[in-house]
Design a protein around this nucleic acid. Structure first.
Ligand SMILES: NC(=O)c1ccc[n+]([C@@H]2O[C@H](COP(=O)([O-])OP(=O)(O)OC[C@H]3O[C@@H](n4cnc5c(N)ncnc54)[C@H](O)[C@@H]3O)[C@@H](O)[C@H]2O)c1
Ligand SMILES: NC(=O)c1ccc[n+]([C@@H]2O[C@H](COP(=O)([O-])OP(=O)(O)OC[C@H]3O[C@@H](n4cnc5c(N)ncnc54)[C@H](O)[C@@H]3O)[C@@H](O)[C@H]2O)c1
Lengths: 217, 217
DNA sequence: ACGGCTATGTGAAAAGCTTCACAAAAGAAG
DNA sequence: CTTCTTTTGTGAAGCTTTTCACATAGCCGT
């Protein structure tokens, strides 16, 4: 354990699943949970669960399982969600508006505190208590509001320009909803949310009458 | 080539990326494209592009590259998006409303033709020309409308019940937005869209000051 | 017609990830 | 205190995916 090995993307994604399952177990007043039960709840294997956790330490008790509350806290620490992150959202259209209202984000520590758009009819309007700012003040306001993460929900055609500005403002983490690959420097983390991709996977599975199935997303 | 090997999930996801890049290349009037250029546009390696495509056939010309229009058509065939799929959407709330308005879906052949909710204020209302149906008529109307894919955008607490009904109606493909693992029979394909997961990945990368970076989504 | 050049297609090697299987730890029971 | 049962933690094996590297195919210019 605790060697400085590189942790795979899949392992991190599964930690999110464990965290989610542990939240449910905690609410249902479970004290401990076995790797077997955790695996069952997220459709994984017990060995996978144990191996993933073992990269970060020994959290369980042999013969008993993992302490629910404590493991949840540990995973929160590993994922960096044992704190709040200040988030801004650019593009208050269909998907942007939905995201502002999404309570799960703030529950996980991602607090949307700034909104930006370039549409005069939207600038100045109020969404969930946040007034939409003019995109022209992006850099200044990102900096003033100490934003650490920016969610991009603008049309694909302008996404690269917006991202360039975000990068110039010193932001190091971006979640992009536009269906386009975006260039960012090596020290900036960018992730893409691509819903067509999942529908296309379903389509592929159907036309190929796949026998196997994989879950995730 | 063309052996009946199992194709990996990653390969299918990358086909979606190639398809997207080819759409841009086609619009910009490119006749051919090399694996190198295709790779550059989606931040992959040329070898990866060639290997992925080789699972399905030989589409390129040595010394020249791939014919843009033809490769796009081929990939559409492989993914099963050279046709239209009839899609229903359950849960016309924040995210559901955004999805109805998302033109990219129909452009890829996924036509949302039915909407369902259980809220009396929403039932009967019109979204982009589609009238919201009562969830109580789900099974009958899914069948009557010959729906093949259902998108689930209801609260996590009721998602399993909704999915059970969908499965009983004979649907074999589901795209789920609720942050919960859902049980379905082995012959039903289900994919999960989990936005918190991507934010948590960003958070992990930031607190662990990761040197590496991965893209996808 | 032919040589040069470029970029594919693909086995083989390397890297990465998952599963196996078991020793060891710890609580429970007597 | 000892034995029994349960379930962790983890090397090693097995499997999958990616990368390498090169023979080969086919355009293009002369
Ligand atoms: N609607 C969906 O369900 C959905 C799903 C997945 C991805 N997406 C992607 O998300 C993005 C937004 O989609 P949408 O449906 O919300 O579109 P939309 O047109 O409703 O919203 C886009 C918003 O961005 C704003 N905008 C445009 N140019 C801007 C600029 N230069 N600076 C600041 N703001 C600007 C617009 O004023 C608008 O409010 C698109 O890239 C789309 O492909 C949408
Ligand atoms: N809002 C977001 O940006 C976002 C992002 C990712 C995931 N999600 C997930 O998507 C789901 C919906 O989120 P939302 O923000 O749109 O919530 P919402 O409350 O705005 O919408 C939920 C809709 O489902 C309907 N509904 C409730 N019970 C139903 C039932 N039994 N049958 C039919 N319809 C029913 C409600 O009437 C409502 O219209 C949730 O699971 C949420 O976690 C939302």
């Amino acid at each position: 354990m605790l060697g400085k090995k590189r942790i795979s993307e899949s392992t991190i994604h599964r930690l999110s699943l464990y965290y989610r399952a542990l939240s449910v177990l905690e609410k249902d007043n479970y004290d401990t949970v076995s790797s077997k039960e955790l695996a069952r709840r997220e459709k994984l294997t017990p060995a996978q669960v144990r191996k993933d956790l073992s990269f970060f330490g020994s959290f369980g008790t042999r013969g008993l399982g993992y302490p629910v509350k404590e493991l949840k806290t540990q995973i929160a620490g590993i994922l960096g969600i044992d704190r709040t992150w200040r988030v801004a959202l650019v593009g208050i259209g269909n998907i942007g508006s939905a995201l502002v209202s999404y309570k799960e984000f703030s529950r996980q520590g991602f607090q949307i505190v700034k909104l930006f758009d370039n549409d005069q009819r939207k600038i100045g309007s109020n969404h969930k208590g946040i007034v939409v700012s003019d995109i022209r003040n992006l850099q200044q306001e990102l900096s003033d509001a100490k934003i650490e993460v920016v969610i991009v929900a603008v049309p694909a055609t302008v996404a690269q320009y917006i991202v360039d500005d975000i990068v110039n403002a010193g932001i190091k983490a971006i979640l992009n909803f536009a269906p386009v690959n975006l260039k960012v420097p090596d020290d900036v983390y960018i992730r893409h949310e691509n819903m067509s991709m999942e529908l296309e996977y379903l389509s592929f599975a159907m036309v190929n009458n796949h026998a196997q199935k994989r879950v995730r997303a």
